[in-house]
Design a protein around this nucleic acid. Structure first.
Length: 895
DNA sequence: TAATGGTAGGGGAGGAAAACGGTCGCCTAT
DNA sequence: TATTGATAGGCGACCGTATTCCTCCCCTAC
């Protein structure tokens, strides 16, 4: 009998003698690999039979071999408040793989009214019942055993698991992989035909004193850090040996899910080599295609693709990058450059001189190294490890799955604790029904208040509600288990949209309970974080509080997700309805004192003009408002001052920029916040983002339009003189679907088509971001989009007019327009207004106003205006065409 | 196919639809 | 032998062009 503590990495099952054995893979305190086997557990599900005895007899007859037990139990149904339990059959099978077969059969035979939990994976069911969470620590007790089926150092026949509190990770090993195919010249590598030329591996910690190794499949002279093999098969065998002896917990790389791993697996098959990359001696590793992604599963290890982390973190705004090639990302995050070898050059170098081959080896080595460095130095796994602990899912499932999977795993456990049963995932037919129903009935979202557009030079306080939707779940006790579908005795809570729930005195909802617990836990972790001095631990705690936040915020979206087990439009609508009510009520509360105006608000926030310019005074006002709001919305949501803007420019809904002042004791910190504006969008070129950023900075900090206008003029003339480097003109857009699904003409899609024609190996595909510039020519803008590399090679001419008129001016015009300066002033004709002056008069579009009141004439080209038509009938200034100006609109040609 | 949390909203580009202006043929009134 | 004066103005049909509106797409705010 031995007790061993280990961190849980993976879980699966094998069937031996018609009996499932659950296997837990992990890492012990001393860094040893462990596999714990648990034999006495079987899969089960629930059904409401049409005819109880009929179903029992049918099952006993048709599935004699695989039915272990059928019993009648009492459970609570999941949707609609239940006063009484319902009798259901709990059907236990011997083999997990038989459950879907039994389930499909009894459904198609029409033997059941309803069926529950018959699609829960065995590993999740097992972990739920034993309260095991991915990446947590457990002490397993049981006897050591011998078996030849797995490759781990410690083997235990488990009797019991006890949770151990340990926030740190075991000594985990990482291996990064990058492969090169050197034989393909013109087309994409074909894994069934084209052999792998090189495999680059990097290790953390070092493997036999090597940080990296490059395996090469043809003869070259001995080199440091290079292992030479006679052919691909020998190299793959070498790779398998290294994998087994290094025995990593994590397999990583850049786009390994999309390319390297499936390629290696296919090559192993083609070479008739075993595909057992995992810690099981027999189970083949597989790589399956789901929707747009490929997922690999390797027993006992975790596959983590750095490319996917980068893409996701960009989406969440943690990393502001317009492209995410390994080179771009490494430069940005690590300050390291990648050896640059294009796809076309790979085969050239592979078949070229020794020098070229060396360069290729170097390139491959750096690629696997960079991916590994990114993963470890940027601690990309931390958040996912904590998400695994919070949701209970295995780390691999957290990485591969979406937010719904996490929510559902928590729901499964909590429903079970209170004797509720969970619905099945919807069928294809049900999904379609839900979607079409949603279209007609609709899920109304949040309220966005009408913004007061313009520059606000008084201090503005930004208040928002702490975790608004989660708080609504709690305050209104919103849950499928408390939803009143018919008349119910006892206290009822009615939401502003008239959806009814029983009060928490009658029954506290399961989601409110979960959410409340998650919020409390997060507050606790944040407190611990503040007190923690150890940097590494602080980082883990930070990842944990973030993970808790993500999961807490996922419940609302889940209820409106058509593929959810617990889907309820009524609930989703009740939540957003409460949200709309609360934000409107808050606005009214603030404005009940006519001193203050709410100038904007979105979903859970409001911005209030304080009428004072002193930040300290504004803060006092903010605190008063905060108190006032919280008094009126007591026990529903909690408002908090997020920050104070010294100046704030609002351009439109969801678009604003502000100068934030933080006064901590004597320290004053200034920072600029920009939301939704082109400076934070990735589908505008750097020239636009940078110019606009500078302009906004000048406007917010100095309130000098003159300076801003001068700055812009400088940029424009540089652009016209071709003094701007092409890199700054690259616009990027991502490919969201397969090319043939695009209905219209899109610039980035046209570029991909061109690249494909020229060199298919270089062409970006679905999910990638495409960079392009617009070149000079008569065609549609989309057709003039070109690959920047190609433009440089061919010396094509950039369409500077496009950049001035479509990239630089429109965003700037919106800014100047909001502060009362017209396009005329920007491009330098007419007098220049000083912002303050324009503000004082509160004149919007002064030139247009002038024209509107007195009808006149205007030049189509340069907007010069005339009270009388020039004698020659053309513009004196630029010889442009003269238009008649009427009711503020240009129209009617002259001459 | 299988499966990927939600809605609100701004803004660019392309293309269809509607609007407009010019011309022509035809008619009528003068 | 015959529709046959000349002119202005109204009207519909047609056609090309400039606007407007709508849809698709991307990306962001929350």
């Amino acid at each position: 009998m031995a007790n061993t503590k280990f961190q849980l990495l993976d879980c699966d099952y094998v069937v031996v003698n018609n009996n499932p054995i659950a296997r837990l893979f992990g890492k012990t305190e001393t860094g040893k690999t462990i596999c714990a086997f648990y034999e006495d557990y079987k899969p089960y599900f629930y059904a409401i039979p049409k005819d109880k005895d009929g179903l029992i007899n049918y099952l006993k007859k048709e599935f004699k071999q695989v039915i272990f037990k059928i019993e009648e139990v009492e459970k609570l149904l999941p949707v609609g408040f239940q006063t009484n339990k319902t009798k259901v059959l709990k059907i236990t099978a011997t083999d997990p793989s038989q459950v879907p077969i039994i389930r499909d059969k009894i459904v198609s035979e029409g033997l059941v009214d309803n069926i529950y939990e018959a699609d829960i994976f065995f590993k999740n069911r097992f972990m739920a019942d034993f309260e095991l969470n991915g990446m947590e620590w457990y002490e397993v007790s049981g006897d050591k055993i011998n078996t030849n089926t797995v490759k781990t150092e410690v083997l235990i026949k488990a009797k019991e698991f006890k949770k151990v509190s340990n926030k740190e990770n075991a000594d985990l090993k990482y291996m990064s992989i990058d492969i090169e195919i050197g034989t393909v010249l013109e087309s994409l590598p074909n894994p069934t035909k084209d052999p792998i030329s090189m495999i680059s591996l990097s290790f953390a910690p070092d493997f036999r004193a090597n940080t990296s190794l490059v395996l090469i499949s043809k003869h070259i002279n001995q080199m440091n850090g290079v292992l030479v093999f006679k052919d691909e098969k020998a190299m793959l065998e070498g790779f398998l040996k290294i994998l087994d002896s290094f025995d990593p917990d994590f397999i990583t790389g850049y786009n390994i899910n999309g390319f390297d791993l499936p390629y290696i697996l296919t090559r192993l098959s083609e070479n008739k080599l075993p595909r057992t990359l995992g810690r099981d001696k027999n189970k083949q590793s597989i790589s399956r295609k789901f929707a747009a992604k490929t997922r690999s599963s390797i027993v006992g290890r975790v596959v983590a693709d750095v490319y996917e982390f980068v893409k996701e973190s960009i989406g969440k705004g943690i990393l502001r990058l317009k492209r995410y090639g390994l080179g771009d990302v490494s430069r940005e995050l690590l300050g390291l450059d990648k050896v640059d070898v294009t796809h076309g050059e790979i085969s050239k170098y592979w078949n070229g001189t020794t020098e070229q081959l060396k360069k290729l080896i170097d390139y491959a080595r750096v690629d696997s190294l960079l991916a590994l460095k990114l993963l470890i130095e940027k601690t990309m796994l931390d958040k996912f490890i904590e998400l695994s602990k919070v949701s209970g899912l295995l780390l691999q499932d957290v990485l591969d799955g979406g937010e719904a999977t996490r929510v559902e795993n928590i729901l499964l456990r909590e429903f079970d604790k209170e004797d509720y049963i969970l619905p099945m995932r919807p069928s294809t037919h049900e999904i379609l029904k839900r979607r079409s129903n949603k279209e007609t009935k609709g899920l109304k979202g949040a309220l966005v208040l009408e913004p007061k557009i313009g520059l606000h030079t008084n201090c503005v306080v930004y208040l928002d509600f702490k975790s608004m939707y989660p708080s609504i779940f709690i305050s209104y006790n919103i849950c499928p288990t408390t939803l009143c579908k018919k008349e119910v005795a006892g206290e009822i809570i009615e939401t502003p949209d008239h959806t009814k729930f029983v009060s928490s005195k009658t029954k506290m909802g399961i989601i409110p309970k979960i959410v409340k617990h998650l919020i409390q836990e997060r507050d606790l972790v944040r407190k611990q974080m503040k007190e923690e001095s150890n940097v590494a631990m602080k980082r883990i705690l930070d990842a944990r509080q973030l993970a808790l936040k993500y999961v807490t915020n996922s419940f609302y979206g889940y209820t409106g997700y058509a593929l959810a087990r617990v889907y309820s439009l009524d609930i989703a609508n009740a939540i957003t309805g409460c949200g709309r009510y609360l934000i409107q009520a808050t606005k009214d509360t603030v404005e009940s004192d006519s001193k203050f105006k709410v100038i904007y608000g979105d979903t859970d926030s409001i911005m209030v003009d304080t009428n004072v310019s002193d930040v300290g005074k504004a803060m006092e006002i903010g605190l008063e408002l905060e108190k006032k709001i919280n008094d009126s919305l007591k026990d529903i949501v909690e408002a908090k001052i997020e920050n104070v803007f010294k100046t704030l420019l609002i351009l439109a809904k969801k678009r604003y920029a502000g100068l934030v002042i933080e006064q901590n004791n004597s320290e004053v910190k200034e920072s600029i916040v920009m939301k939704g504006i082109e400076t934070v969008r990735r589908d505008w070129c750097d020239l636009t983002s940078e110019t606009l950023f500078s302009v906004l900075e000048i406007v917010l900090k100095e309130q000098s339009a003159k300076k801003a206008v001068e700055y812009v003029k400088g940029i424009l003339s540089k652009l016209e003189r071709n003094e701007i480097s092409i890199e700054k003109l690259v616009i990027t857009k991502s490919i969201s679907k397969s090319l043939r699904d695009y209905k219209g003409v899109q610039p980035h899609i046209e570029v991909v088509k061109k690249i494909r024609k020229r060199n298919p190996t270089e062409a970006p595909s679905i999910g990638d971001r495409v960079g392009f510039v617009i070149i000079h020519g008569p065609q549609l803008m989309s057709e003039r989009a070109e690959d920047p590399t190609y433009v440089k090679e061919q010396g094509l001419k950039i369409d500077s007019k496009y950049y001035v008129e479509s990239q630089i001016l429109p965003p700037l015009e919106r800014v100047f327009d909001a502060v009362g300066i017209t396009k005329t002033e920007i491009i330098g004709i007419g007098r220049q207004l000083v912002l303050a002056e324009a503000m004082k008069n509160n004149v919007k579009k002064p030139v247009v106003d002038l024209l509107t009141s007195a009808e006149g004439f205007i030049c189509k080209e340069c907007n010069q205006n005339y009270r009388r038509i020039p004698l020659i009938g053309k513009c004196d200034n630029c010889n442009g065409e003269i238009l008649f100006y009427s009711a503020g609109q240009k129209g009617r040609h002259l001459g």
